[in-house]
Design a protein around this nucleic acid. Structure first.
Length: 570
RNA sequence: UACCCCGUGGUGUAAUUGGCAACACAACUGGUUUUGGUCCAGUCAUUCCAGGUUCGAGUCCUGGCGGGGUAACCA
């Protein structure tokens, strides 16, 4: 009952709600572990372009570093030369920087550590903890056992350290064909955790590596490279996704048995799943190579370059990721959450303009032919400093086809025969006549206007509720507008009947190209990357590839919320 | 099937050492509005189930049920 809140209470902002990783990090920091240091890393494999799922890993790793005055390394996990390419390294750098994170000079490659990893492998052999196995892939798989059955020791498991050392050196020297031999850790073929059943450490693979060229013909596997790379870089918290939980015992086994310079700690969290979206690099690759989309940067793609071209801002993505939270539960985030993050940001920052997507001609009969009235339109009602711009009203103008209905439903308060509507920033007009072509399609509206209704003034005898956007013939510039919708028609695109491909869930209407829109003249000259709200329609951005002043092309980033169409859907 | 992880409103995350289930989004109501946008107010939960410990359990214990991951010479 007592008022414990004074108006200027210094700390009545809600306590920071920590996620489970932050809780552990703070506990470590409090306990004085790692010398009070926090050091994370983002370790992508350069085998594709980064997508919204990676954005979470990026935000978590780099974000944590920012939050606790720590550091975050960028490390390319390039241990499989058959899949990795320089093109992807470049693309990833660009996308991470675009998101607004920097890794300073701490850009590393797992391949930087190949020599050290090789030494460590030899150490393991000398300690009797690794051996060269001559079995084939099939044999190894077959003898690994299953959940119920323990595995069977390899017949080569008992080779001496000397023999193993010699064989491993010969593997490296290229004396055996690909796949002929592997190096395995000697752990426990009966372990309940499959990862501990003598995991493969090195395989022979003659593939050109994007960085080390042909220097190596043997390459370490993920498990043998990752933890040690963390250790080399002094990573304190190695954050990864849930599917590596079962690998943690192995991660720690290497740390236990190798003379590593540091002991990082692995913590797993759930990946981001988004409705109507896939985040499998392989499947995204398929969409690109099978031509379902125009490329990795197609505005419908969940890749960071796709989102960028679509008009998503780095901040909106970071806000979204932040808002989604971090936990171990595997959930799916509603797509509207992403869209709202963009809307919320652009509502505050984007200047407003008028554009008509599907133009319907309006002639104001009682308007003097040559008269042009200049009105000041507010650039951004959320930001007074954005100022105003002139728009010009004339006898002929374009309005949205949707803003006129011959036979409207109840509560439709835009234009209809005999009805009236306000032109945004202009006066009230009344529809006197509907002109149709031979096929019965409405091609023109003949209207009259009330010059006493500027500046929001209502007509004397009635109240006009509807306000519509318009572009006058005087101001109009033709433009192409690309309207994007979800790439998939199902919230869970991967859920398909047996034998069917996820591509059958592709939304055939995910792209609609409008070639004859008209926009305010000023929109022709805008810079790519600059977002605008087209009033009453949504947020749009000039296409970074195709827009030019002589041929304006806009992408719809996201529509405005539309409670009218929502209420009329049922 | 074996092993590992996870179950809190429609959705995603919170809830000091057990102590009034909170925030955001969505949905629904109303209000404001020269954008059917924005903004403002209100409504919306037997914490998967069953036992147990306790003055008191979302939190601890036992057993179920449900979901996810793993069983590559991918990462």
């Amino acid at each position: 009952m007592a008022t414990e809140h004074t108006a200027n209470a210094p700390d009545d902002e809600p306590a920071e709600r920590l996620n489970f990783i932050e809780v552990q990090v703070e506990a470590d920091l409090r306990a004085g572990k790692n010398g009070g240091r926090l050091h994370t890393r983002f370790p992508p494999e350069p085998n594709g372009y980064l997508h919204i799922g990676h954005a979470k890993a990026i935000c978590v790793n780099f974000g944590l570093a920012e939050q606790y005055a720590g550091r975050c390394n960028l490390r390319f996990d390039d241990t499989n030369p058959s899949k990795e390419e320089q093109e992807y390294v470049d693309g990833m750098r660009e996308d991470i920087a675009w998101l607004g994170f920097s890794w300073g000079d701490r850009e590393y490659f797992a391949s930087d550590y190949f020599p050290k990893l090789y030494e460590w492998a030899c150490d393991l052999i000398r300690a009797g903890l690794a051996y060269v196995d001559d079995q084939s892939v099939e044999e190894i798989r077959a003898k690994r056992g299953s959940g119920h059955a323990p595995g069977v020791d390899s017949p080569f498991r008992a080779r001496s350290a000397e023999e193993n050392l010699a064989l491993f050196a010969a593997m490296r020297a290229g004396e055996f064909p690909d796949g002929a031999k592997v190096l395995r850790a000697k752990i426990d073929m009966a372990a309940a955790n499959m990862n501990m059943r003598d995991p493969v450490l090195y395989r022979i693979q003659r593939a050109h590596h994007h960085r080390t060229g042909d220097e190596w013909c043997i390459y370490p596997l993920y498990d043998f490279a990752h933890g040690q790379s963390d250790a080399i870089e002094g990573i304190t918290h190695s954050l990864c996704s849930l599917e590596f939980e079962n690998h943690r015992p192995l991660y720690e086994w290497f740390l236990d048995h190798l003379d590593v310079p540091y002991r990082p700690r692995q913590i797993e969290f759930a990946r981001l799943e988004l409705e109507y979206t896939i985040t499998s690099k392989r499947k995204l690759q398929q969409l690109v190579s099978d031509g379902f989309v125009s490329g990795w940067d197609d505005p419908r793609m969940p890749t960071l370059r796709g989102l960028r071209r679509r008009g998503y801002t780095p901040q909106s993505i970071r806000t979204f990721i932040d808002d989604a939270g971090v936990a171990k539960f595997n959930g799916t985030i509603p797509l509207v959450k992403l869209e709202n993050a963009l809307r919320d940001e652009l509502n505050l920052s984007a200047e407003r303009r008028m554009a008509v997507l599907r133009p319907l001609k309006v002639v104001i009969e009682d308007w003097p032919a040559e008269q042009v009235v200049e009105r000041q339109a507010i650039n951004n009602p959320e930001d007074e400093s954005a100022g105003t711009r002139p728009v010009h009203l004339g006898r002929e103008l374009w309005i949205e086809r949707d803003d006129f209905m011959e036979d409207p439903p109840k509560k439709y308060f835009r234009l209809q025969p005999g009805g009236d509507v306000r032109l945004r920033y202009g006066c009230v007009i009344t529809c006197r006549e509907v002109v149709k072509d031979a096929s019965g399609e409405v091609v023109e509206l003949r209207c009259t206007h009330d010059p006493e209704t500027y500046d929001g003034k209502q007509p004397a005898d009635r109240k006009v509720k509807g306000v519509i956007h318009w572009v006058s013939a005087h101001d109009a510039v033709r433009a192409e507008v690309r309207l994007y919708d979800n790439l998939f028609r199902e919230p869970a695109p991967l859920d398909v009947p047996e034998g069917e491909s996820f591509t059958s869930n592709l939304n055939p209407d995910s792209l609609e190209v409008v070639t004859d829109a008209v926009v305010e003249r000023a929109l022709a000259a805008v810079e790519p990357g600059q977002s605008y709200q087209f009033e009453r329609l949504g947020y749009f951005v000039p296409d970074s590839g195709d827009h030019s002043p002589s041929r304006p092309v806009f992408n719809r980033s996201v529509s405005l919320r539309d409670s009218w169409s929502k209420q009329n859907k049922s």
